[in-house]
């Protein structure tokens, strides 16, 4: 009897210790992932966005991207021809400037509607934000698989999602798959990541977001990515938007 109580005690201590370790692990793992994803000072590259409808119809847009830190970004479309020259400058505090060359002028757009689709893609403004996941979500380690940590993220602030489940590569801490769940606990979207090392950083060469309700897909492909080229704040000015 005595022995049994003791073993019960040991196992519960171990259990408690286990959860404690897991909690630690989950936030550490997530922080590591944030570091891998958002640690570069700046980045330049080319982006190709392929929209694939349910019937397989494809529509392609290309643009160049410059990014400094996590909050300044300049996108300039190069194709299709009708949209070439359209530029979007994103600045902190949800302020954007949009430049349409046919009009020869820019407009300031302040958007607080985060759950809206970004320019016809399956990414919402929320998904596109380059903000650290640790700030936005509370993590919980679900399980450890051969190659990945499976972590559940619960939004800290109000969100359209009830949770995200994220599969993080054990070796390089890059996300391989993110699943998005609605408030009814149903998986509504999933993003698959393909990545490779560019210089000192791991970089996603393709993110494929699938809207599971509509079966519409968006592929975002990055190429010619360079990190830490020393971009100045001047690159993200209104004057540069029009160039």
């Amino acid at each position: 009897m005595k022995k049994m109580t003791f073993s019960l005690l040991v196992s519960s201590v171990l259990l408690l210790a286990g959860t404690y370790v897991n909690a630690q692990d989950a936030s550490t793992i997530l922080k590591k992932m944030d570091n891998v994803m958002f640690s570069s000072k700046d980045m330049v590259g080319k982006q190709k966005v392929v929209l694939i409808s349910k019937n397989g119809n494809k529509e392609t847009r290309e643009s160049t991207i410059k990014q400094k830190g996590t909050e300044k970004r300049l996108m300039r479309f190069t194709s299709p021809a009708s949209q070439a020259g359209i530029s979007v400058l994103s600045l902190p505090n949800d302020v954007m400037y949009l430049y349409l060359p046919a009009f020869g002028k820019e407009r300031r757009i302040a958007s607080s509607a985060k759950n809206q689709k970004f320019a016809g893609t399956d990414f919402s403004y929320d998904d596109m934000e380059s903000k650290s996941y640790s700030n936005k979500y509370t993590p919980k380690l679900l399980k450890i698989e051969t190659n990945v940590f499976v972590i559940e993220l619960t939004p800290k602030a109000s969100s359209d999602y009830s949770k995200l489940i994220i599969y993080i590569n054990k070796v390089n801490f890059y996300p391989e798959l993110i699943e998005y769940y609605d408030k009814g606990g149903k998986k509504v979207k999933e993003a698959k990541y393909i990545f490779k090392k560019v210089g000192n950083y791991w970089s996603a060469t393709e993110i494929q977001m699938t809207d599971l309700k509509t079966n519409h897909k968006t592929k975002m492909q990055m190429s010619e990515v360079k990190y830490d080229t020393g971009l100045t704040d001047d690159e993200f000015s209104l004057r540069k938007l029009k160039d």
């Binding site: 479309f77 009708s82 949209q83 359209i86 949009l98 349409l100 060359p101 046919a102 009009f103 689709k117 970004f118 320019a119 016809g120 893609t121």
Partner: peptide, 16 residues
């Protein structure tokens, strides 16, 4: 009056 303007305004509407 110009087609180019319409095409670029379309950029804002696409995906809605």
């Amino acid at each position: 009056d110009e087609r180019a303007k319409i095409e670029q305004l379309w950029f804002l509407l696409d995906g809605q």
